[in-house]
Amino acid sequence: MRNSFAALALFAACVAASCGSSAKQNAAAITGGDPDRGAHHIARYGCGSCHAIPGISGAHGLVGPPLAGIGRRLYVGGSLPNEPANLEHWVRDPHSVNEKTVMPNLGVTARDATDIAAYLYSLK
């Protein structure tokens, strides 16, 4: 009985672990970016002072929407269909999508935006 519990726990742990890494692999495959580098850029640009972002230290902001599960949403920036190119476009130049948005243009480079999108799509 105890053995079967242990086996179950081990199985669950393996599934969780493989899910974690496969989410990153999927996100990297969809965007062509590197999720780990994306996490670094998110911290560097200071996204967390406005957004709550799982996995980023100190990212508990309430100004903008929380970004957990952003990959399951249908629109980004309130109007763009949620796909990698649009997410990157929104991250780089939000005012070209909505001139009244409070989200600032932080001078994110194309390469960094791809990595950031990769990280965001890896979030559950």
Binding site: G48, S49, L106
Partner: peptide, 8 residues
């Protein structure tokens, strides 16, 4: 930086 400043 600009990101943190806007949140602040």
């Amino acid at each position: 930086n600009k990101g943190n400043l806007s949140g602040w």
